[in-house]
Structure formats: structure tokens, C-alpha cells
């Protein structure tokens, strides 16, 4: 199974990501987002940011989780290279997510290839009936 695929979209960045579990699909979506801004496969997990987000449904949870990557890039110059220890659980009427994001900072000299401004709800999809078993998530980001 591919981890993710970048899809064509007129104005912005669109991708789908896959996983055997919802957690895996979310983690791959984070890498897909990172791939629009830098080559995550070249980033070593030298520093770690722990993130916690809550959402009223899975869709809001995904938008907020991906939003963390944009926020950490702009305010901590953090370049995501690896997602680990990702856990999604029911919380209040919705969901909560915890994850460890590993990566480096801009100062390490990696090339930046794109600018993601925000994560949107446009054409956002989260499906658990992906052929072959597992989850497919799709998101569009504002660039």
C-alpha cells in the first residue's frame, strides 16, 4: 500500500493518504502535507514535538492535527520527518489525538519547496472502506 498520493487541484495542494488503521492514515497524511513543503525522507528525527489535539469529529481532528505541522514550521522552524506514537481515542463527544513528531529545524539547511498557509475542510474525506482494508483520508491545503 502506498503511504500517500499527491492529487491535482487547481489552486492548491490536495492529497490522499492510506493506513491499515486511522492512526496510520493520519500519520501518512502528515507526511503528505510535509512533502508539499520539504523532502521529509531526508529529515532525521533529531528533535521531537509532542502534540495533542481534540476535535468534535474525525474531520476536525485531522484538520487540527495537520495544522500543527504548519504551526510548528512557522513558529519553531520545525521540519517534520517522522510521526510516531500516534494514538486516537474517543474524547467527550468527539476525538483526541496524541502524537510525537520527529524532525529537524530549518537551520539544518534543508530546502523548502512550498508554502502551505492553512489546512481546509474543502473535499476533506475520511473513509474506512478502502479496498484492501483500512482507511483513506483526503485533504486540500491552501498554498
Amino acid at each position: 500500500m502506498n503511504r500517500y498520493r499527491i492529487l491535482p487541484h487547481t489552486a492548491d495542494g490536495k492529497f490522499e493518504a492510506f493506513g491499515k488503521t486511522l492512526e496510520e492514515a493520519f500519520g501518512h497524511a502528515a507526511l503528505a502535507l510535509a512533502s508539499l513543503m520539504w523532502d521529509w525522507s531526508k529529515i532525521e528525527p533529531r528533535i521531537e514535538h509532542l502534540v495533542h489535539v481534540e476535535g468534535l469529529d474525525r474531520e476536525q481532528l485531522l484538520v487540527k492535527f495537520l495544522g500543527e505541522i504548519v504551526y510548528l514550521f512557522e513558529t519553531r522552524q520545525f521540519l517534520l520527518g517522522r510521526v510516531s506514537r500516534i494514538v486516537i481515542r474517543p474524547h467527550l463527544d468527539g476525538f483526541a489525538l496524541d502524537a510525537a513528531l520527529g524532525g529537524e529545524t530549518l537551520a539544518s539547511g534543508h530546502e523548502i519547496t512550498g508554502d502551505v498557509k492553512a489546512v481546509t475542510y474543502h473535499e476533506l474525506a475520511i473513509e474506512d472502506d478502502w479496498p484492501g482494508g483500512g482507511w483513506r483520508v483526503q485533504a486540500v491545503v491552501d498554498m
Binding site: L56, E59, Y121
Partner: peptide, 25 residues
């Protein structure tokens, strides 16, 4: 500005819900 938009889409979703919207944006 991007963050203000992001923040308030969430605040409005939580306050008014998303049921019946043809598009969550």
C-alpha cells in the same frame, strides 16, 4: 491572518455545528 481564519472556522463549528452545511468551509 491564516491562523485567525483557521481558529474561527473551528470556533464557529463548535458553536453552531456543521449539520446541513453543503460545504464545511
Amino acid at each position: 491572518g491564516h491562523q485567525v481564519a483557521t481558529d474561527f472556522i473551528e470556533i464557529l463549528e463548535n458553536a453552531f455545528g456543521v449539520a446541513g452545511l453543503p460545504d464545511r468551509e
